[in-house]
Amino acid sequence: MKKFIPLLTVSAGLSLGLVTQGCVTSSGSPVVENGSNPAVTTGAGTDAPYYGTGPNNSMPAPQTAPVDLRNVTGARLTSEKYSVRGNKDYTVLGQKYKVWRDVESYYEEGTASWYGPGFHGQNTSNGEPYNMNGYTAAHKNLPLPSFLKVTNLENNKSVIVRVNDRGPFHGNRILDLSRGAASKIGVIGPGTARVRVELIKTVATKDQTNENLMNGFKPYIQVFSTMDYNKALTIKNSLSRETGKPVFIQNYQQAYRVKMGPLKQDEADRALSAVRKSGFSGAFFTAD
Rank of each mutant, 00 (worst) to 15 (best):
E80D: 15
T91I: 10
V92N: 07
E108V: 10
E108Y: 12
V150M: 02
N152S: 05
V159K: 03
G110R: 02
G121D: 11
L77R: 08
E154Y: 14
G118D: 14
D102S: 15
H139R: 00
G134W: 10
G167H: 11
V159A: 05
V99M: 15
T111F: 14
L153H: 03
T151R: 08
N126G: 00
A112G: 13
V103L: 04
N164T: 14
N131Q: 03
H120V: 02
K81P: 01
Y115G: 01
K96C: 10
N164C: 07
L93V: 02
E154H: 14
Y107R: 04
E154G: 13
V163N: 06
S83Y: 07
V99N: 13
Y90R: 01
E80L: 13
K140G: 06
R101H: 12
S146L: 05
N126Y: 06
V163S: 02
S83F: 11
S113H: 11
V161T: 10
K88P: 06
Y82R: 12
T136P: 03
L142T: 01
T73D: 14
V92D: 15
G134R: 13
L77S: 04
T73I: 01
W114L: 00
S125P: 02
S83N: 14
R162M: 08
Y115E: 00
G127Y: 02
S79I: 07
N164P: 06
V92L: 12
Q95A: 15
A75L: 11
H139G: 00
G74A: 08
K98I: 02
Y130L: 11
E109G: 06
Q122V: 05
V103P: 02
S125E: 01
G121W: 09
A75V: 06
F147T: 09
N133Y: 14
